[in-house]
Write a protein that binds this DNA or RNA. Structure first.
Length: 593
RNA sequence: CGGGGUGUAGCGCAGUCUGGUAGCGCACUUGCUUCGGGAGCAAGGGGUCGGAGGUUCAAAUCCUCUCACCCCGACCA
C-alpha cells in the first residue's frame, strides 16, 4: 500500500512536471525555450533578433522556420481571436489541401501567370501539383461543385493554414518568410451589393481583430495586385521597420499605400518667365541623379529624371522630378501593359543614342514621352542630353520639349497634397498584416462557379477574399512592442501573462512562496510562467525581459521579510505588494492592460 | 537572375595568406563556493572543419567542381 501510493505520487509529480495538470501555466525547467545571449548574425530586424534570442523560433531553411512552444502559444492566441471574430461575422472554418493539382490553376489561368513564386511539384506518376500560395482555385472548385442555389448564398468560408510562396528573397525572419501561417477567407454572394456587404463585414471584423490583438494599425487603400478586383484595403501595423510605405491625410480620413495613393494634377502657372537658353555641360561618368546633383551642386528637385521603360515590348520615356520615384503599378495601368520593365542598356542606347544615365526629353524622338504631374511647371531644369557624359541645364518644359501627355506616375511622399481634400499627406511605415479584396466574378466566371437565381437564371457568384498573416502578426507585434531588453507583448498575445521569479533558488522560504503564488495564479486561471531554474537572479530577470510577459513578480528574501513581493509591468515601475494580496492585484493589473 | 560575402562544436568567432596533434568565448555535464540584474574556481563532454574530387609523405589550409546560407540590386498575392 505504501509502495503503490509512492507510485501514484511519482506519477502525479511526473504529470505536474510535464505541465499536464491543466491550464496553460508552465515551469521554466520544463519549457523548451532556448534563449540566446548573443544576436544570431543573420537577424537584422528586431522581431527576427528577439524571436530568435527569446527562443520562439529557429530557422530550418531560407524563409522556413520552426515555431517553438512560446511561438505556438502566441500563434494560438492570435488564431483564437481570429476565429472568434470570423465566426461572429458569419464565416465558417474549413481546412483545404495544401498540395493542389495543376488542373484547377490551369482553369483559372494562373498556372501560367503566377510565375516562379508558385512552387511546382510532380508526383510519382508525373502529374503536376503546386504548394498552395493562396486558395482561390481550391475554394471555387469546392463551392461550384455543391452550391447551386441562391438560397445557399451568401457563403463565407475561411481556414488557418500554412502557405508557401517561393519568394525571390525571403528576409527579416518571420516578417517575410516563404512558409507562413495565414488565415484566408473567401466570400460568395449572389450579387454585387451582397458582395459589398460581405466585404464591409470583413473590413469591420478585421478592425476588431487587430484592435483586440493590442496593435496600433491603420486600414489603408491598396492596389489590388495580381489577385485582381476593384476594392481593396490593407491593414498596416505601424512600425518603423515596416516594409511598406503608407501615407495618410492630416485633415481627412484618407490613407493609402504609396503604391496606390493617387496624386492630382496641379495648376499650370501662366506667364512664367523662360529661363536662360539651354546649355550643355560635361558630366563625365555622372549617371545617377545623386551623382549629377552633387557634381553640379544643384538640388535633385531641379532635375528631370528620364526613365526608359518597355511596356509589352514598346518603349516609353517617363519623366519624373529628380527626387521622385516611379510607381510601376501606376505606369502599368496607365499604359495598359501586362508587363513593364526598365529598359536594359541596349534598349536605352537604341532609344536615346546614349549610354544609361544620360537620357533626356530634349530632342528625344521616336518614343512617346509622358511626364509626371509634378513637372507641369518645370523650368530651368537639369536633364540628360542623350549624349554620353553630358547633361543639359536651363531646360524648360513647353519651350524645349513637349510631352505627349501628363499623368500620375510616381510614388506619393510625405508632404504631397491630399487627393481628397485640402490637407497634406503624412508618411508612415507599416507591416501589412491583413488584406481584403473585392474580387467580383473574375474567378467564378473563369472556373464556372455559378448558381441559379430566384428567377432560374444562371449567374456567376460574386467573390471577395480576405487574408491575415497570422505568423506575420506575431512579428509585427514584436516590431511594434519591444525595447532594448526584449519583447513587450500586448496582453492578448503574450505567451504568458505573468512570470514568477524566485530570486534565490537556495532559500526554502523564497521557493515556497513562489511555488505557492504560482499555484494560486494557476488556480485563478492566469497563464503563469514559474522560473524554477537553479539560476541567479540576473539570468532570470534577463530571460523574463526577453520573453516579455506583461507582468513580472519577483519573489526575494529581502521582500519576504516585509511580507511583500515586487510586481513590475514589463513597461512600468515596480510596486511592492503584500504576498496575500498579490493574486488579486495581478488580476486587477491584467484587467487594466 | 546579376554583384558581393560566409560556411570550423548548439550560438558567436579565431586558425586558411605561409600545409604538419582543431582552438577561444558563451551554452552544456559534474563538484565546491556564491545568490536582487546574464557569478567564481576546478574537472569534463561535444567536430566526418558544408559536400565531392584532385595535388601531397601529410589538407580546415593549395587546386577544380558543387551545395547551402547571408547582404545589395532586380522582382514581389
Amino acid at each position: 500500500m505504501a509502495a503503490s501510493s509512492v507510485v501514484v505520487a511519482q506519477a502525479a509529480l511526473r504529470y505536474t512536471a510535464l505541465g499536464l495538470q491543466g491550464g496553460c501555466s508552465m515551469r521554466m525547467t520544463r519549457l523548451h525555450a532556448p534563449t540566446l545571449k548573443e544576436i544570431p548574425k543573420d537577424a537584422e530586424v528586431p522581431s527576427h533578433q528577439l524571436l530568435m534570442r527569446a527562443g520562439f523560433i529557429r530557422k530550418l531553411s531560407a524563409g522556413i522556420y520552426d515555431y517553438l512552444p512560446l511561438a505556438q502559444r502566441v500563434l494560438k492566441k492570435i488564431s483564437d481571436i481570429v476565429r472568434e471574430e470570423m465566426d461572429a461575422a458569419g464565416a465558417q472554418e474549413v481546412l483545404l489541401p495544401m498540395v493542389q493539382p495543376a488542373e484547377i490553376w490551369q482553369s483559372s489561368g494562373r498556372w501560367q501567370k503566377y510565375g516562379p513564386e508558385l512552387l511546382r511539384l510532380k508526383d510519382r506518376k508525373g502529374n503536376e501539383f503546386c504548394l498552395g500560395p493562396t486558395h482561390e482555385e481550391v475554394i471555387v472548385d469546392m463551392v461550384k461543385r455543391d452550391v447551386r442555389s441562391w438560397r445557399a448564398l451568401p457563403l463565407n468560408l475561411y481556414q488557418i493554414q500554412a502557405k508557401f510562396r517561393d519568394e525571390i528573397r525571403p528576409r527579416f525572419g518571420i516578417m517575410r518568410g516563404r512558409e507562413f501561417l495565414m488565415k484566408d477567407a473567401y466570400s460568395f454572394d449572389a450579387d454585387e451589393a451582397g458582395a459589398n456587404a460581405s466585404y464591409d463585414a470583413m473590413f469591420a471584423a478585421y478592425n476588431r481583430i487587430f484592435a483586440r490583438c493590442g496593435l496600433a494599425f491603420r486600414p489603408v487603400e491598396a492596389d489590388t495586385g495580381a489577385i485582381g478586383g476593384s476594392r481593396s484595403h490593407e491593414f498596416q501595423v505601424l512600425a518603423e521597420t515596416g516594409e511598406d510605405a503608407i501615407v495618410s491625410c492630416d485633415t481627412c480620413g484618407f490613407a493609402a499605400n504609396v503604391e496606390q495613393a493617387e496624386l492630382l494634377k496641379g495648376e499650370a502657372l501662366e506667364g512664367e518667365p523662360a529661363s536662360a537658353p539651354v546649355e550643355a555641360v560635361a558630366t563625365p561618368e555622372q549617371r545617377t541623379i545623386e551623382e549629377v546633383s552633387g557634381f553640379l551642386g544643384r538640388p535633385a528637385t531641379g532635375f528631370i529624371k528620364t526613365l526608359i521603360v518597355i511596356a509589352d515590348d514598346k518603349p516609353y520615356a517617363l519623366l519624373l522630378r529628380g527626387d521622385h520615384e516611379l510607381n510601376e503599378i501606376k505606369a502599368k495601368k496607365l499604359l495598359g501593359a501586362e508587363a513593364l520593365m526598365m529598359a536594359d542598356e541596349a534598349q536605352v542606347k537604341a532609344v536615346t543614342g546614349a549610354p544609361v544615365g544620360f537620357a533626356g526629353p530634349v530632342g528625344l524622338e521616336g518614343v512617346e514621352i509622358i511626364a509626371d504631374y509634378a513637372l507641369i511647371n518645370a523650368r530651368g531644369c537639369v536633364t540628360g542630353a542623350n549624349l554620353a557624359d553630358t547633361h543639359l541645364i536651363n531646360v524648360d518644359l513647353g519651350r524645349d520639349f513637349e510631352p505627349r501627355r501628363f499623368a500620375d506616375l510616381r510614388m506619393a511622399v510625405a508632404g504631397d497634397p491630399c487627393p481628397r481634400c485640402e490637407g497634406k499627406l503624412e508618411g508612415f511605415r507599416g507591416v501589412e498584416v491583413g488584406h481584403v479584396f473585392f474580387l467580383g466574378t473574375r474567378y467564378t466566371e473563369a472556373m464556372g462557379c455559378t448558381f441559379l437565381d430566384e428567377r432560374g437564371r444562371e449567374q456567376p457568384m460574386v467573390m471577395g477574399c480576405y487574408g491575415i498573416g497570422v505568423s506575420r502578426v506575431m512579428a509585427a507585434a514584436v516590431e511594434q512592442h519591444h525595447d532594448e531588453h526584449g519583447i513587450c507583448w500586448p496582453r492578448a498575445l503574450a505567451p504568458f501573462e505573468v512570470a514568477v521569479l524566485p530570486l534565490q533558488s537556495n532559500k526554502a522560504d523564497v521557493v515556497e512562496a513562489a511555488e505557492g503564488l504560482y499555484a494560486a495564479l494557476k488556480a485563478a486561471g492566469i497563464d503563469a510562467l514559474l522560473d524554477d531554474r537553479d539560476e541567479r537572479a540576473g539570468s532570470k530577470f534577463k530571460d523574463a525581459e526577453l520573453i516579455g510577459a506583461p507582468l513580472r513578480v519577483a519573489v526575494g528574501g529581502r521582500g519576504l521579510k516585509e511580507g511583500v513581493v515586487e510586481v513590475k509591468p514589463r513597461r512600468g515601475d515596480k510596486v511592492d505588494v503584500p504576498l496575500d494580496e498579490v493574486v488579486a492585484y495581478i488580476q486587477a493589473q491584467l484587467a487594466a492592460l
